[in-house]
Nucleic acid binder design. Structure first.
Lengths: 344, 344
DNA sequence: TTGTATGCGTTATCAA
DNA sequence: TTGATAACGCATACAA
């Protein structure tokens, strides 16, 4: 189990270590024959260069990382695939890091950049509400993906997302247009000031614009520990039903929540959409195949992912300054929502 | 953008670097006051130790990798979480590598071990039908997870899984017990000789044991390019329905396929389980929340994942020889299946 | 209890 | 085209 080092190879080849290094790293100034000979010995000796030493010395490891918070958010899986492809095309390597739901993704970012000498970071998910000084500590370019930039005082963050406020408004507006006046909402935890807050604010405004008074009793927050999962949607909906607050539509601010909600409603003997209309957000596959299929706001995953990668490389090459790019979501009407008139 | 190093901290604290090192690594021989002071300065200076340097010095880059094939298989997400936790507890770091559906995972493994100096590998997913010489090229211990070992001639592989044959048999036996005699099956592509084959063989045997003749017209294979996704289940079921072959139950060899199937059946005007019973395999969350909830074989994800990690570390430490561990799945009867008598 | 000096395996710089 | 050698940032044996 003894580790073979570059020195062992050098000795075996009767050359200097730097020559071995050159052979391995495709350096131009080396005799092809020497190179071939060395490579052959390397292959025979099953020598493997030590990456820690490499990274320590080398500062140009062309690699970026995707930091994913909340892997259960199935929405991200597609994003990652697309991003990986772009990254690969740029001859960069790409490491995926899952960060715990409760962990701080910025701290993770700082640490991992140090360790792996990354050239850039992509943040996927998480509640992006970090103080500017903290963000400034990230020593490489980064892009916040699927969450609108929260440029808190300092210079703007690079971000790629839909306009959560506008898209959320679209959905609530649609539900109101269907004749619903008692629309319950499941949203992020109370102190969220990220996308959860935006989607909630839009809900409020849309109601207002339809002349519907805002009723706090219809607003249900996830708790701090809840993730955007089926289970959370199910759990919160159970709580809603226990309260016996009357409502004809339920707007779950994620498709996963919406699906959990449908299940809870079904178990309570309620039919979607005949008794209750349910709407989600994101446009994940599961919502399309669910019965009833879930009315949702579809985020343009491909575009978002492609632009995220593109922007990061622009930032790395210094071609561009951090900015927010906003894409349009799409209201996808499916089976889970229904006009209130018909509903009765 | 300059990196803060341990020397900067030492200078700022007016102590030696070793003292700083001691402070960080909870060494016993250090004055608590000094330690506190140093830790404070570290926090203020947003210093992050360089892990490459650490690993280099410790000469033990304690890291393993999880190679995941088919990320859309939601089943794996939970597994990864559990494995990561165990790995973290062992003070190892853990990198996750997605491997393309069509790529060769063993080649990927060999490459990545070389590159990252891994101490072990966990294979998640993929069709494990690789020649023994190929496997032997992997220079570190590895565990094949969720797929039974295919010890092809050589010494046995380390694997952790359920007995796909036995579990699949359980399901088909259950369906037969419900009175179904025309049971369609959606299974892996024709030339699969991994879990797809096992599950199919069990189907055959179970039918036989119930005195039901095997009808090839009821067997539907995925194609080479299909993944275990909702979309595949949907697509194949559409094809089944076009054939107008009569059947009263559909056994989809993955929950994702089952869900896609339910959708297709619904669109054909068929109700599950009243017209057709549908069964899946795996026990993913989505199946539990689906309407109707999916009858399935639940794989003991936690156990599988925990044992996978445990086994890998046993292998790494040389405490154990590669072997197969088999866990029991559980038949979970839910809403998507129904007795044929009642069904009529 | 603390500081100094050495080496981990590599790459890059320089001189040969 | 090569080889010796100095970093890279850290942990630690050893000296103080």
């Amino acid at each position: 189990m003894e580790q073979v080092t570059i020195r062992d190879i050098a000795r075996k080849c009767k050359v200097g270590v730097s020559t071995v290094s050159r052979a391995m790293n495709n350096h131009p100034d080396i005799n092809p024959e020497t190179k071939e000979m060395i490579l052959k010995v390397i292959a025979e000796s099953n020598y493997v260069p030590n990456n820690s030493a490499r990274n320590l010395k080398r500062s140009n490891a062309k690699a970026i990382a995707i930091l994913v918070k909340g892997m259960d958010n199935m929405f991200f899986n597609n994003m990652i695939s697309v991003i990986e492809e772009v990254v690969r095309k740029k001859k960069y390597s790409c490491i995926i890091e899952r960060v715990e739901e409760k962990a701080n993704e910025v701290d993770s970012a700082i640490e991992i950049v140090k360790e792996k000498r990354l050239r850039g970071i992509i943040f996927l998910g998480g509640n992006f509400t970090h103080p500017h000084e903290k963000m400034a500590q990230i020593p490489v370019p980064y892009v916040i993906s699927t969450i609108g930039a929260v440029s808190d005082g300092g210079k703007p963050c690079a971000s790629v997302s839909v306009d959560d406020y506008r898209e959320s408004y679209k959905m609530v507006d649609y539900l109101c247009g269907l004749g619903h006046r008692r629309i319950a909402i499941i949203t992020a935890c109370e102190d969220d000031i990220s996308i959860g807050r935006l989607r909630l604010n839009a809900y409020r405004q849309a109601l207002l614009d339809h002349g519907i008074p805002y009723d706090p009793d219809l607003v249900f927050h996830m708790t701090k520990d809840d993730t955007y999962s089926f289970a959370t949607g199910y759990k919160v909906t159970k709580e809603i039903l226990e309260k016996k607050t009357e409502f004809s539509a339920l707007y779950a601010t994620a498709d996963t929540l919406a699906i959990g909600a449908c299940r809870a409603l079904k178990e309570a003997g309620l039919t979607v959409p005949d008794d209750i209309s349910v709407a989600g957000f994101d446009g994940i596959d599961a919502g399309e195949y669910y019965i009833p299929s879930i009315t949702t706001i579809r985020q343009p995953v491909e575009q978002l992912a492609a632009e995220t990668a593109k922007m990061l490389f622009s930032l790395i090459s210094g071609k561009e300054e951090p900015c927010s790019k906003v894409y349009d979501g799409e209201l996808v009407v499916r089976e889970s929502t229904k006009s209130r008139i018909a509903q009765q």
